[in-house]
């Protein structure tokens, strides 16, 4: 440790200046990040609609229409992945028309995607937030995201309802045709059999009436389902119980949400300064621990400096050129110089 401490003492002013520069820049950046970050957040209460109001349990859109907190958070995250959703969101804010060309739009949407955040706070509670440089834009983005999400869910609900209603209508039409056919068969049977009926005829008549009763019951059930398919989503909409915004997004007047990025910047600056300082000390120590000149030889006592051999400027040809020349002088045959130069 001794040599390193010695180097650190030797370069203390340089180290101090470097650390002041790196750490100072980091602190300034962190402060700037903190003071220019505004986060708007909406707190939302969600719950599942009663099963009776579910249009069709097998409908894949059910989870979109009615979910608990994690399902809603998942839905938000999926929506954020869609550029069309983000475009719709931006279109409802002051940023409308600022997305620019395709490349710029892609970049802007990616940036917005990073800044939108949904978090589950409990089984039925979630928050939706947007972090930006402008407090009013942050609020607008949250409000717009909620509105577009509502719009998308409503569209999905209408589609699901119309599909289910269509299915039930077809089943109803089929049932009505069946009922009419059975009614006609019963009437024909009654017309053809005036007197007392045999056991076989009585049994046939009972079968026809039973089948007619069953079809009529089925028709009643289908009419009920059709009514429910239309009414249930409307009831869910009216009650608003499955998605309630408890706290609306506000336009923050003081910085909010910038603590984490600022802390990250400070940490990076501190680490970078420390690493640079360590590198400087390491390199300084390694360089200092070499023979820097005749004065350094004193550190090799009891060995003493006997003489110095000056460096010869050889126009970049290096030490081996000198040896090649010397070899040529000493062993003056044709190959001496080239042999030495070749090594």
């Amino acid at each position: 440790m001794g040599p390193y401490l010695k180097t650190a003492r030797r370069y203390r002013w340089l180290l101090g200046a470097m650390l002041a520069l790196v750490w100072g820049a980091g602190l300034v950046a962190a402060y700037s990040e903190y003071t220019t970050t505004f986060e708007s957040e909406a707190i939302i209460w969600v719950q599942r609609a009663p099963p009776q109001l579910a249009g069709n349990p097998e409908d894949p859109n059910v989870t979109v229409v009615q979910t608990a907190a994690s399902q809603q958070a998942s839905l938000f995250n999926q929506l954020f992945l869609a550029d069309s959703f983000l475009r719709d969101v931006v279109a409802r804010t002051s940023l409308n028309g600022t997305l620019g060309n395709a490349v710029q739009e892609r970049k802007a949407l990616d940036d917005i995607r990073k800044r939108l955040r949904v978090q589950t706070l409990g089984t039925n509670l979630l928050s939706l937030s947007f972090t930006g440089r402008d407090a009013s834009i942050a609020r607008e983005m949250v409000d717009a995201a909620l509105a577009v999400r509502g719009q998308r869910v409503a569209q999905a609900r209408v589609t699901a309802t119309s599909q289910i209603s269509g299915l039930y209508q077809k089943q109803l039409a089929l049932g009505q045709a069946q009922a009419l056919d059975l009614q006609r068969q019963v009437e024909e049977f009654d017309q053809n059999h005036d007197g007392p009926l045999s056991d076989l005829e009585q049994r046939r008549r009972d079968q026809l009436r039973l089948a007619l009763d069953y079809v009529q019951i089925r028709l009643g059930d289908l009419r009920g389902r059709i009514d429910q398919a239309v009414l249930a989503p409307a009831l869910v909409d009216v009650s608003g119980s499955e998605f309630q915004i408890l706290d609306e997004a506000r336009e923050e007047t003081v910085p909010r949400g910038g603590v984490k990025p600022a802390a990250l910047l400070v940490t990076i600056a501190l680490a970078a300064g420390a690493v640079l300082a360590a590198l400087l000390v390491l390199v300084g120590t390694l360089l200092a621990d070499r023979l820097a000149g005749p004065a350094t030889v004193g550190r090799l006592a009891p060995a003493r400096l006997f003489a110095t051999v000056p460096r010869v400027g050889t126009d970049g040809r290096g030490k081996r050129d000198l040896r090649a020349e010397l070899a040529l002088i000493a062993f003056e045959d044709a190959g001496a110089g080239s042999r030495a130069a070749g090594r």
Partner: peptide, 13 residues
């Protein structure tokens, strides 16, 4: 006790 010969010293040559 060897003595040191400093080679390629920064002496004008």
């Amino acid at each position: 006790t060897p003595q040191i010969v400093l080679n390629r010293a920064a002496v004008a040559a």
